[in-house]
């Protein structure tokens, strides 16, 4: 946003190097440290299918976080993604019962449209993304309550194929997590090797520059939010696979903060232009480890949201690139 020229002060090179190092291996180091901590403090964790538990709870966090990373990468934020996940899961449970096997495809189209609506309003009316997605968050949340009648919707028919995603797996890692990793690989390829992907990063780094370079910034914003909607829908699919049901207050209804935390711990910059979907995988795994790790060090389970809140604040504070004379709102 600001156009001042940053003069690199003495010793600044080290700082830049540290930042680069953090972005490339930091998330992996954080995850391995937490994993080692848990493995040492609670040795039973590894024997009792702990890895399966972490991987399955990381799956939905990862998918939501990937969408969030794509949106953060263009310098915006999507506060509505977790509510799209729940609404998508509820709609999926209902349509599986009535429409049948075509339902997942249908739902993924619907959630992509939800995301696209976010993007269209943000790009073409130029409202701040946090305010707009806070508004749509309220609408999707209401829609989830209304559609489900504020109760749990169970998958009664045609659910076997989706449930198999969770029940099958390789080496104790459920397919839902593998789905997340595949999505991360695709997102990584998209951002590194395709024209729209590179252009999105350009928007995040310098939007004015991107506009003057003839990049269709508005449509790319719409695309980023559409992808966030799509990935949130995939997260809803993993929730159905795991629980076989969906409810407005049930599994997955509290994915917003973990999703942002996973994106940020995964090295995504909150101010845009920097993200690596492959590292977000480790971010999501770390976030999924938070409840287990905090139990291992003796933090009561009630303090979980406190830990999430602190993780977000501290990680952003540590990794934020800032210059002394810029204006932060």
């Amino acid at each position: 946003m600001t156009a001042e020229i940053n003069v690199v002060p003495a010793g600044g090179n080290l700082k830049v190097k540290l930042a680069k190092a953090w972005q490339s291996v930091g998330p992996l180091v954080v995850f391995l440290t937490m994993f080692a901590l848990v493995a040492i403090l609670t040795p039973t964790f590894l024997g009792n299918g702990g890895v399966t538990i972490v991987a399955s709870s990381a799956a939905s966090v990862l998918l939501v976080a990937l969408g969030q990373s794509l949106v953060l990468n263009i310098g915006s934020i999507d506060l509505s993604n977790a509510s799209i996940t729940i609404l998508g899961a509820i709609l999926l449970a209902m349509t599986l019962n009535s429409v049948g096997a075509i339902a997942p495809l249908f739902i993924l189209i619907v959630v992509s449209i939800f995301g696209a609506i976010n993007g269209l309003i943000i790009a073409f009316t130029q409202v701040p993304s946090f305010a707009l997605t806070l508004g749509t968050f309220g609408i999707f949340q209401s829609a989830a309550l209304v559609v489900s009648g504020a109760t749990t919707v169970y998958v009664k028919e045609n659910g076997d194929a989706i449930k198999a995603l969770y029940q099958s797996g390789i080496g104790g890692i459920p397919m839902t997590f593998a789905l997340g990793v595949i999505a991360a690989l695709v997102a990584w390829w998209f951002l590194r090797f395709t024209r729209p992907g590179l252009a999105m990063t350009a928007i995040g780094k310098n939007e004015s520059g991107a506009i003057f370079s003839g990049i269709k910034t508005r449509w790319l914003k719409v695309l980023a939010f559409t992808m966030s909607g799509f990935l949130s829908g995939l997260a809803g699919l993993t929730i159905i696979a795991q629980a076989g049901s969906a409810s407005p207050m049930g599994l997955g209804s509290d994915l917003l903060l973990p999703g942002i935390a996973a994106a940020i711990v995964g090295g995504t910059s909150i101010s845009g232009g920097v993200t690596n979907p492959l590292n977000v995988v480790f971010g999501a795994l770390s976030v999924a480890l938070v409840p287990i790790a905090s139990a291992a060090v003796g933090v009561p389970s009630q303090a979980q949201s406190l830990v999430y809140g602190l993780v977000i604040i501290v990680t952003v504070a540590l990794t934020l690139s800032r210059s002394s004379n810029s204006i932060v709102k």
Binding site: I77, I260, I270, A303, S305, L310, I313, V316, L320
Partner: peptide, 16 residues
């Protein structure tokens, strides 16, 4: 740190 992210974190700290 941008205010929306600090206060989003503080929301959950308060809840915690």
């Amino acid at each position: 740190v941008p205010s929306f992210i600090v206060t989003l974190g503080m929301w959950y700290v308060g809840l915690g």
